[in-house]
Design a binder for these strands. Structure first.
Lengths: 154, 154
DNA sequence: TATTGTTATACTCTATAACTATA
DNA sequence: TATAGTTATAGAGTATAACAATA
């Protein structure tokens, strides 16, 4: 059994380094930390950003729609929407024909804020991945989406 | 602005789907959920497995070593090691020459348990990624490690 | 002064279960 | 019966700050 040598940590010499799941997690943490540095200034958590993004791009989403799209439970979305609504980025609006649902409608203010944020996030990714070629990034995205498509539904 | 169409969710047509960080997270969640299905039977959380794996493969790791390798704080490791020690998988043993540190030494029992677990995890990954070619997996691993190497140190 | 292990504490993210009002 | 939104609650996972012992 070898003594610990830091230089071999990512060389794939240990069981852990050969696992896809572990590498996926560690890579995700790298990006997440950078996200927080960027979004944190504006007090926007990554999940807030994700929810805001989808409401900007799809008309009259309900909270249940959003939860399904983000892969989280409906109950978890209440606080997120509360926050986004409190900051004036979107509004819960009643929908004619089904009084159970409330569509999430972005405000002008919300659109302006979002446009700033998406620009910041894109700039941050461009810088964080500046060592990777366009081809590598393209390949990575395809492989990640392939993993996502293999998700086992409940 | 388009109406929500579930079929286009992963097609890259929205801002979110074009972000590396978002795809990384979603892919990670897919694997994580599968991990939990597999490791959960034996009440072994993913981070317990990671810590156990490293102590099996590196001689006389200290908790500080482990924390650095896993990218978490020292304080977070106390509970992990407590649990692994309570289950008889490893032991904190004093080290001659430095009375501050306690080396983490695997037990026979721990080795047997770990051998079972790593086999289960590998089988689970083989099945979860059965739609991907060996080449695709190799490429993915290289790209993930490249992202990890780009991590900004504190 | 710096490091190791530790405790206390708090925060984020998320899930489960139950409720209500609608359908 | 089923669904939308909601609340309460609990459990991971993690970080920060402080401390005693030791280097």
């Amino acid at each position: 059994m070898p003594r610990f040598d830091p230089s071999e940590l990512q060389s794939g010499s240990s069981d852990l380094e050969e696992l896809i799941g572990y590498n996926l997690k560690r890579a995700y943490v790298v990006v997440q930390n950078d996200y927080r540095d960027v979004l944190g200034e504006d007090h926007l958590a990554p999940r807030m950003f994700s929810a805001l993004s989808l409401t900007m791009q799809y008309e009259n989403l309900t909270q249940s729609d959003l939860a399904r799209m983000l892969g989280i439970e409906r109950s978890g979305l209440v606080a997120i929407v509360d926050d986004l609504e409190a900051r004036g980025f979107l509004a819960r609006t009643s929908v004619p024909g089904d009084r159970r649902v409330q569509a999430l409608v972005p405000t002008e203010n919300g659109r302006g804020f979002y446009d700033d944020m998406i620009a910041k996030v894109r700039a941050h990714e461009a810088e964080l991945f500046s060592e990777m070629t366009r081809n590598e990034i393209e390949t990575l995205m395809q492989l990640l989406k392939k993993i996502r498509r293999g998700e086992k539904r409940k």
